[in-house]
Design a protein around this nucleic acid. Structure first.
Length: 459
DNA sequence: GGAACTCGCCAC
DNA sequence: AAACGTGGCGAGTTCC
């Protein structure tokens, strides 16, 4: 396997900066009038929520104690009210050891007014960070986010002014409000090209685990469904059944991905229980948790399997984790050990893309950096080549942005098919030819938004 | 009055 | 023994 050198890494950064700078100069079109309109609308909603909050006992006591110094946005004051004045036991603590007031902590409390505070946070975030950011940073209807290649320890990119890499997507309401502001040039459509499961595929290029390789090559296999079966103890599952789909999501986002980042079963067990609505303490009962297709509940099923409490589940998840790394992905695990030992011996690590990370690192950082970095470098390579082809062929379409494993294009309809073909050529020919260490087939998928339509997913 | 910090929260 | 990787940004707060 031929790996890249630091000189190769330098060239990638050099060409990357030039290509990204061209995207920055093109800019992303913003519907500024919409932003202004929506900002006013959100302000009215925020004012209404504040009025509702003012009617609550929590607010009145808060006002009584703090007077003019009271600020609804002060979490320090809120923590004092909840955990000192009202003497509530904090559900969790911050990194600095203070009682937490994050969404998770607050939503466990049964205090009138908390719901208003959470909604106020959500809408002020949308208004102040995103809509006002777009308005502030736009000139003549375009924003020009910066893409940096010098800020991130893994040699990923970052984005600023405004950050174009954290626009809401998961929360559908926030997604619609914010992405409605991002529009294509007149007569164009936005195209988003995403690598599928890029980091998992790149991890394979390091550890070469045969079981993982089978999962990546066999389109009919489903790692997350297999883990759901093991975690929730079912012989078979079908992801088309809604309850099974929930458990698959839980396995994916509550176990598999966190484990790949270096999490452990203790955290996973709590997260998984939240997903399927099982309590984190005490005995479980037959009527608890997610409802199954036959009308029974997951609580009854787990009890039948001998998991009768959270403590039982915790012990079960320890066994699942041991099996995950000790049997299923044994070779991946052995690579992690070797990779850490090598770093500790030579004092640095070098990615397959040539980039070197040095300095003191923890175990999780040592094994995550090369995967995160190299995955982004595949995107950057693709971005550079797409930009080169677009200039050579004088496309009307503009490459306008990048979000770690995806590229955003402001595309002319005449060029849709050419763009897809060019992307396919880069990912299937140029990339694997340039980097022989890529031992898995990478896939890039394109989503075309409507002509003259914003960046809003319809599903 | 501004720099630096904490917290919370958005993305991959 | 340790125990989720990488960022940017707004608001509040603290320090100089």
């Amino acid at each position: 396997m031929i790996k890249a050198t630091t000189a190769d890494a330098y060239r990638l950064v050099h060409n990357g900066i030039l290509a990204l700078a061209r995207a920055e100069r093109e800019g992303i079109r913003i519907d500024v009038e919409y932003c202004e309109r929506k900002r006013k609308q959100l302000t009215r909603r925020i004012d209404w929520l504040e009025k509702k909050l003012e009617e609550t006992k929590l607010y009145k006591r808060w006002r009584h104690i703090y007077g003019k110094r009271m600020s609804i946005g002060s979490n320090q004051q809120l923590a004092h009210m909840l955990y000192k004045v009202m003497k509530i036991e904090p559900a969790k603590f911050t990194d600095k050891g203070e009682p937490s007031t994050d969404e998770d902590a607050l939503s466990r409390l049964n205090v009138e007014g908390i719901e208003y505070i959470l909604r106020l946070r959500k809408y002020t975030k949308i208004r102040n960070t995103y809509l006002e950011g777009f308005i502030r940073e736009s000139t003549d209807g375009y924003i020009h986010p910066f893409y940096n290649l010098h800020n991130v320890r893994t040699y990923r990119s970052s984005s600023e002014a405004p950050n174009f890499q954290n626009i809401p997507k998961r929360d559908k309401e926030a997604m619609k409000i914010c992405r409605r502001a991002i529009i294509p040039r007149t007569g164009h459509a936005l195209i988003e090209a995403d690598f599928s499961a890029l980091e998992v595929n790149i991890s394979e290029c390091y550890h070469q685990d045969p079981v993982m390789m089978d999962y990546l090559l066999d389109k009919n296999s489903d790692m997350h469904l297999d883990m759901a079966k093991q975690i929730f103890m079912f012989d078979s599952m079908d992801k088309k059944i809604p309850a099974h789909a929930v458990m698959r999501q839980a396995a994916k986002n509550g176990f598999v991905f966190p484990q790949f980042y270096g999490d452990y079963y203790g955290n996973n067990a709590s997260g998984l229980c939240d997903w399927v609505k099982l309590p984190l303490s005490g005995k479980w009962a037959d009527d608890m948790g997610l409802e199954l297709p036959d009308g029974t509940h997951i609580g009854a099923h787990m009890r039948q399997q001998g998991i009768k409490s959270f403590d039982d589940f915790l012990a079960h998840m320890k066994r699942v984790e041991d099996d995950f790394w000790g049997n299923r992905f044994k070779v991946y695990n052995e690579w992690k050990q070797k990779w850490v030992a090598q770093y500790r011996k030579q004092g640095y690590l070098q990615m397959h893309t040539g980039f070197i990370c040095s300095g003191m690192m923890r175990k999780n950082e040592i094994v995550n950096y090369p995967i995160q970095g190299s995955a982004f470098h595949c995107l950057l390579f693709t971005f550079i080549e797409l930009d080169r082809i677009a200039r050579e062929e004088q496309w009307k379409s503009k490459i306008i942005g990048q979000i770690h494993d995806s590229i955003l294009i402001d595309a002319h309809p005449d060029e849709f098919e050419r763009i897809k073909a060019a992307l396919h050529h880069i990912v299937k020919e140029l990339l694997p030819n340039a980097w022989k260490w890529i031992i898995v087939p990478l896939e890039i998928e394109t989503e075309v938004y409507g002509v003259d339509k914003p960046w809003v997913q319809v599903s």
